[in-house]
Every structure is written in structure tokens, then in C-alpha cells.
């Protein structure tokens, strides 16, 4: 094994470089922001409102689209149907296209000139420059994370357990709710967290649908464009802290759920 030592050292060195690449800019940003700047920025009404808007719209996008994404993931995991590979590839499209292009695509779909846009307006649900539009843009770019994680989760549930439940008199809906869903829950929860986190950090697609009201990534960009780095940085630091806080809490909750299960 000794002859592999230099290779191992090289790998550790490369890994260390990679870690530094992630940590250094973030650490630099945190170190460049004084506690006073941090708390002043956090107390700003515009910043607080924008963080709150970002949090709830990304959460709403995750929960609303989960209603369709989770059952769809089960279909992808369990059923054979024509063009299944094509359907799976379509699910991944939002990950690979530029997000500003995704924003343009959604805009073309829900603008006031389209049937959907007009219908939305009639029932009081405008998409341009509204939280509803933000939710759509966030969901569009983040939905693959949930669908893929949930599909992997359902695939890992032994089909035999679902068959056993059917044989024990349960309806397909009951089997889904009492067997498939709880057993795939760990992956689904992880997918929900990833979708939420991805939605929260979205900029490109949202800025095209709704510059106002401003979600935090747009606010950071706007402050940078108008006032420069030193004004944008504290907002970025506050937002990162909020994101990391929620991310840590959710991870902790999901780990506790796992421990309870084991």
C-alpha cells in the first residue's frame, strides 16, 4: 500500500485546493463585513422584506409543485411506458439550460399577451412582477431536484412491499400513502430541501419575470449595480446566514427522523 502514498497525498492536496476555492471567497466576504454593518443591514426594512419574500416564495414553489412532482416521481420509478427516457430527459432540461433563457421561456408563456396570462389576470393572478411569477420561475429551475430525488427514493422501495400491501386489501392510494411514501420519505425530504434551496438562490429566471418585488438575489445584484461591492456584500452575507441557518435546521430535523427510524 505504501507505493500509493504519493498519489494519496496528491489527491488530498487537490481536494484541499478545491475546498479553499469554495471557502476562501465566502470567508473573505464574511471577514470584510463588520458586525455593525451586518446588523444594520439585517435591520433594513427593504432587506428583511426581500429575505422574507425569497423564503416564502421558494417554500411555496416547493410545496405547490411537490403535489404533482411526488406522484409523478412514483410513476417514473414504477411504471414502464413509451418514451419514458425522453420524459426523464425533459425533467432534467431546466438544469442544463441557461436560467435567463428559462426566464424568457416562462415569460413568453405567462405574459399578458398569452391565454394563460390573460386567464390569470382575470382571476386576479398576474404573473409578471408578482410573487406568483417568482414562484413559477423558482419552480421551473428547481423541480428536477425534487423529481429525481423522489424517483430514486421510490425505486429503492422493494416493489414486493407494495404488492404485499395490495394483497392485504389496501387500495392503491392507501398503498402509496402508507407504504411507498413513508419508505421513500428520506429521499423525498432531501429532494424537498434541495428544491427549496435551489429556488431560494435563483436569480436568472426570476429577474426576467419579476424584477420587483425584489427577492434577495435580485436585491444583491441591484445594490451591486447601483452602489458597488461594499453595499451588496452585507446583504449577501445576511442572506447566506439565513439560508445556512434554515438548511442546517432542516438537515438536523431530517437526520433526527432518520435516527428515529433506525
Amino acid at each position: 500500500m505504501t507505493r500509493f502514498q504519493p498519489l494519496k497525498l496528491l489527491f488530498i492536496f487537490l481536494g484541499g485546493l478545491l475546498l479553499m476555492f469554495i471557502i476562501a471567497p465566502l470567508a473573505g466576504m464574511f471577514l470584510a463585513t463588520s458586525p455593525a454593518e451586518f446588523f444594520d443591514t439585517a435591520a433594513e426594512k427593504e432587506v428583511a422584506e426581500s429575505i422574507w419574500l425569497t423564503l416564502w416564495t421558494s417554500m411555496a414553489a416547493t410545496l405547490i409543485f411537490a403535489i404533482a412532482a411526488i406522484p409523478f416521481a412514483w410513476i417514473l420509478a414504477r411504471k414502464k411506458f413509451p418514451f419514458k427516457r425522453l420524459v426523464s430527459a425533459i425533467i432534467d432540461v431546466p438544469v442544463v439550460i441557461p436560467h435567463s433563457a428559462a426566464g424568457i421561456a416562462i415569460l413568453g408563456f405567462v405574459s399578458r399577451d398569452t391565454a394563460i396570462g390573460r386567464l390569470g389576470e382575470q382571476i386576479g393572478l398576474g404573473f409578471i412582477g408578482t410573487p406568483a411569477g417568482i414562484i413559477l420561475a423558482m419552480a421551473f429551475v428547481s423541480i428536477p431536484f425534487l423529481v429525481n430525488a423522489a424517483r430514486d427514493g421510490f425505486s429503492a422501495v422493494p416493489e414486493k412491499l407494495e404488492k404485499a400491501a395490495l394483497n392485504l386489501g389496501a387500495s392503491p392510494a392507501r398503498v402509496f400513502i402508507t407504504i411507498s411514501l413513508p419508505l421513500a420519505w428520506r429521499s423525498i425530504l432531501s429532494g424537498l430541501i434541495m428544491m427549496w434551496a435551489r429556488g431560494m438562490s435563483e436569480f436568472g429566471a426570476v429577474v426576467i419575470i419579476a424584477y420587483h418585488p425584489m427577492i434577495t438575489p435580485v436585491l444583491i445584484y441591484e445594490r451591486f449595480g447601483s452602489f458597488g461591492l461594499s453595499y451588496a456584500r452585507p446583504v449577501a452575507v445576511v442572506f447566506i446566514c439565513v439560508c445556512l441557518f434554515f438548511f442546517a435546521v432542516l438537515r438536523m430535523l431530517s437526520n433526527r427522523y432518520e435516527d428515529a427510524e433506525n
Partner: peptide, 19 residues
């Protein structure tokens, strides 16, 4: 339907619900 057949099936590896 599976549910209405009136037969009870015991799988080889028991297929108990682990949760």
C-alpha cells in the same frame, strides 16, 4: 382485483413493512 380475491400471500422473505 388483488384486494378482492380472498387469498392471503406470505412472501419468501416475509415482506414485513419495515417502518
Amino acid at each position: 382485483k388483488v384486494q378482492g380475491r380472498g387469498v392471503g400471500l406470505v412472501f419468501q422473505d416475509s415482506a414485513l413493512f419495515p417502518h
